[in-house]
Amino acid sequence: MAVDKVTATDATLELMDSLKKRHGELMFHQSGGCCDGSAPMCFAADEFKVGESDILLGEIGGAPFYISKDQYEYWKHTQLIIDVVDGRGGMFSLEGPEGKRFLTRSRVFTENEREELKKEASIV
């Protein structure tokens, strides 16, 4: 059983479908910056350069989801759940004009999930 480190709500997947129609393929980066706090940022796939300090956490709706190594260290014990709420989106994120914003929720992995993640890490 593979454990997803990042998942998305149905509302997130619906908004992503709408954004894909206008912008093409998408990608996400879990921001840790000063401008938008720690919001998940959504970009057209070719508009954000992933650096050496970023890791691929997983995919949501077919879009890769990255997080900085430093920030991952804080959240590695949790599953990130990307949701959508009403409000102003991140100034650089594609959902900004929609009156919606992506929001990261999280839950702590269960003991069984942590054991499975350890097994998966040892395979790599």
Rank of each mutant, 00 (worst) to 15 (best):
G51P: 00
D54G: 06
R107H: 05
E120R: 14
S68N: 14
T104D: 14
F109N: 09
A45I: 11
I55F: 08
K20G: 07
S53P: 02
K21R: 15
R114F: 07
E95L: 00
E14K: 12
I55E: 10
I81T: 02
F28D: 05
M27I: 08
H29E: 11
I82L: 10
D10V: 09
E115H: 13
S93R: 07
A8H: 04
G87D: 03
M91W: 12
L19N: 05
M1K: 14
E25T: 02
R88C: 15
R105C: 13
A39V: 08
G61S: 06
T110H: 04
P40Y: 00
A8Q: 01
G32P: 01
F109P: 07
H29R: 12
K76M: 09
K118F: 12
L26T: 03
D83Y: 08
E73C: 10
G61A: 05
G61T: 01
H77S: 15
I123E: 13
K49S: 13
E113H: 02
E116F: 09
H23Y: 12
F109T: 10
P97Q: 05
D70V: 12
S38M: 09
E113L: 05
F65D: 04
H23E: 04
G90V: 01
G37C: 02
M16N: 05
S93G: 01
G51C: 09
E25I: 01
M16D: 04
L57Q: 08
I60H: 05
K49Y: 13
T104G: 13
L13P: 03
G62Y: 05
C42P: 13
Q79E: 14
E115R: 15
S68M: 10
S18D: 12
Y74P: 00
H23N: 09
E47D: 15
M91D: 11
D70P: 09
L117Y: 03
K5N: 10
R101V: 05
G37W: 05
Y66K: 06
R105K: 15
D10L: 06
P97I: 07
F102L: 11
D17A: 14
K119T: 10
R114N: 07
C42G: 08
Q71E: 08
L56W: 03
G62E: 09
K119R: 15
Q71S: 03
T110P: 00
T12Y: 03
G58S: 01
D83I: 08
R88D: 15
K21H: 07
R105Y: 14
E98I: 06
K118Q: 11
K69S: 08
H77Y: 15
L19Q: 03
V3D: 01
Q79R: 12
E116P: 04
E52C: 10
E113K: 04
T110K: 02
L19A: 03
P97S: 07
F43V: 02
P97M: 02
V3I: 11
E25G: 04
E120H: 11
G61F: 02
C35R: 10
C42F: 06
R101C: 09
F48V: 07
A121H: 10
G24A: 05
D86V: 08
V124W: 14
G37T: 03
D4G: 06
Y74H: 14
A44F: 00
D17P: 01
K5T: 06
S93A: 02
C42D: 07
T9I: 03
C34M: 14
Y74T: 14
D10S: 13
Y74L: 11
